[in-house]
């Protein structure tokens, strides 16, 4: 055993370790240092917690923090619920199953910028297809992306449109892995479709649900491109996310502040996603 272990030499992981270490781990570690500095890439000056204070005092920065949480929770919730509905539906006896699955899944493979542009056109307040359609049934559609209280939610909906396909296929894989006997047993006991869904499908596809929750939540926290393509964080700062603030501060040359935004995003992911991951995985083991 000892001998065979030495065959699996660590030298095999050196190439990956160098690339990943230098270009991912090292910058991550450095970000903790540079977030406490005023910095122009050549010289830095230690300013303590000033960047972080600014982040939480300045309303235009603070809003990004709130928006990020709203966005992550909203997109994650919708992806889980809608994905589960699609998946249950797609696991029943359908003639058009593979067509439907492909239809729901394809948007996940399209570039985010392309999706953003397309939906900017569809959500145009007067000419956009969405409001034109609503107009047909007598509803005066809102300015989806121009209304400060709606812009973030509109973008979140587009995110769900684009991303629900991944949730759906993961749920389908989860549901398919449930042995059929459980459903037969439920039928014999006189359970209806709802019982089957609530007492068999949900608990037994827990691993899949956990995966979707974590993937969608972290994806939501880190989102940048869709918001940037659709609203640029506007109107005003109403749809700014932490990731878009990092970009804006970077463009403005406030590298220390931008890096502080990065550290805050890291902390947010670590504070929410890591415990969530541990918690959900522990439950899995119990199953």
């Amino acid at each position: 055993m000892l001998k065979s272990k030495s065959v699996y030499t660590y030298t095999l992981l050196i190439p990956a370790a160098i690339i990943y270490g230098v270009l991912f781990i090292l910058p991550t570690l450095l970000s903790f240092f540079f977030s406490f500095t005023r910095w122009n890439l050549r010289e830095w000056e230690w300013i303590g917690f000033e960047n972080f204070m600014m982040f939480f005092e300045e309303p235009s920065l603070m809003i990004g923090f709130q928006n990020t949480l709203i966005y992550a929770v909203l997109t994650m919730g919708l992806k889980v619920v809608l994905g589960l509905i699609f998946a249950v539906f797609l696991c029943s006896k359908l003639k058009t199953k593979s067509f439907l699955r492909a239809t729901v899944f394809f948007p996940t493979l399209v570039s985010t910028i392309a999706v953003g542009i397309t939906f900017s056109a569809l959500m145009h307040p007067s000419q956009g297809l969405i409001n034109q359609t609503l107009g047909l049934i007598g509803i005066n559609g809102p300015d989806w992306l121009g209304n400060p209280s709606l812009a973030l939610i509109s973008v979140a909906f587009v995110d769900v449109w684009k991303g629900v396909g991944i949730a759906t296929v993961i749920f389908i894989a989860g549901i398919m892995s449930i042995p059929k006997d459980y459903y037969e047993a439920a039928k014999i006991d006189g359970g209806n479709k709802f019982h089957e869904f609530w007492n068999i499908t949900i608990p037994l596809s827990r691993p899949a649900i956990n995966t979707v929750i974590i993937l969608a939540f972290i994806g939501g926290l880190r989102t940048f491109d869709l918001v940037w393509a659709m609203t640029g964080g506007g109107p005003g700062f109403s749809s700014d996310l932490i990731a878009s603030i990092i970009y804006k501060q970077y463009q403005a040359g406030f590298y220390g502040l931008s890096t502080a935004g990065n550290v805050i995003l890291f902390m947010l992911v670590a504070a929410i996603a890591f415990p969530l991951y541990m918690f959900l995985n522990r439950k899995e083991v119990d199953l």
Partner: peptide, 29 residues
Amino acid sequence: RSDKKTNGIAFVFISGLMVPTAIVPTIWV
């Protein structure tokens, strides 16, 4: 390999799935 050290290394690699890219420090590097 399934020793502690290897699991630690694996954790560092896999945590990259969650950790956001540190933008400006990466540019600096």
